[in-house]
Simulated scan of single mutants.
Amino acid sequence: MDNLKKRGVEDRSKINMHESFEVKSWTKQLGVSKERLQQIVDKVGNSAASVRKELARHEKG
């Protein structure tokens, strides 16, 4: 069960799209919209490393 008193990103290796405070943190950290983050998570999964890799791939291309 989630501890609602903790508002930091608990597992920095995963992106939990079901927790609004985590989504806000990740969108700010990665510089993307919630919608873009969701698209990438849907494509590559919720691994933060995979999401970062996908974002970097699009920045270069």
Results as ranks from 00 to 15, higher is better:
38 Q>E: 12
11 D>C: 00
2 D>L: 15
52 R>K: 12
40 I>E: 02
50 S>A: 06
55 L>I: 14
18 H>M: 11
29 Q>P: 02
25 S>M: 09
49 A>S: 10
30 L>E: 04
24 K>D: 05
53 K>D: 15
17 M>Y: 01
57 R>E: 00
56 A>T: 00
21 F>E: 10
51 V>A: 06
27 T>E: 04
45 G>I: 04
1 M>I: 07
34 K>R: 07
59 E>A: 07
57 R>A: 02
53 K>N: 07
16 N>E: 03
13 S>K: 13
13 S>H: 11
42 D>P: 05
59 E>G: 07
6 K>L: 14
32 V>K: 13
59 E>D: 05
14 K>S: 03
38 Q>P: 13
61 G>W: 11
47 S>D: 14
11 D>M: 07
9 V>I: 08
12 R>E: 07
58 H>E: 15
47 S>E: 08
37 L>W: 10
3 N>G: 15
30 L>N: 04
12 R>S: 07
55 L>Y: 10
15 I>L: 08
56 A>F: 04
45 G>S: 01
45 G>W: 02
55 L>K: 10
21 F>M: 09
35 E>N: 06
33 S>D: 06
6 K>C: 14
52 R>P: 10
44 V>R: 05
27 T>L: 00
9 V>W: 04
24 K>P: 01
15 I>W: 02
32 V>Q: 09
57 R>K: 13
61 G>C: 10
40 I>W: 08
11 D>V: 06
22 E>G: 11
41 V>W: 05
18 H>K: 14
24 K>F: 05
49 A>R: 11
54 E>A: 07
41 V>N: 06
4 L>G: 09
53 K>G: 07
38 Q>G: 09
6 K>R: 15
33 S>R: 10
18 H>W: 07
22 E>N: 05
39 Q>E: 02
31 G>H: 03
20 S>H: 01
40 I>Y: 09
6 K>I: 06
17 M>S: 04
60 K>I: 04
23 V>Q: 05
56 A>S: 05
35 E>D: 14
46 N>W: 08
51 V>L: 00
26 W>K: 00
61 G>S: 15
18 H>G: 08
45 G>H: 00
46 N>V: 06
57 R>L: 06
8 G>S: 08
3 N>Q: 15
36 R>Y: 14
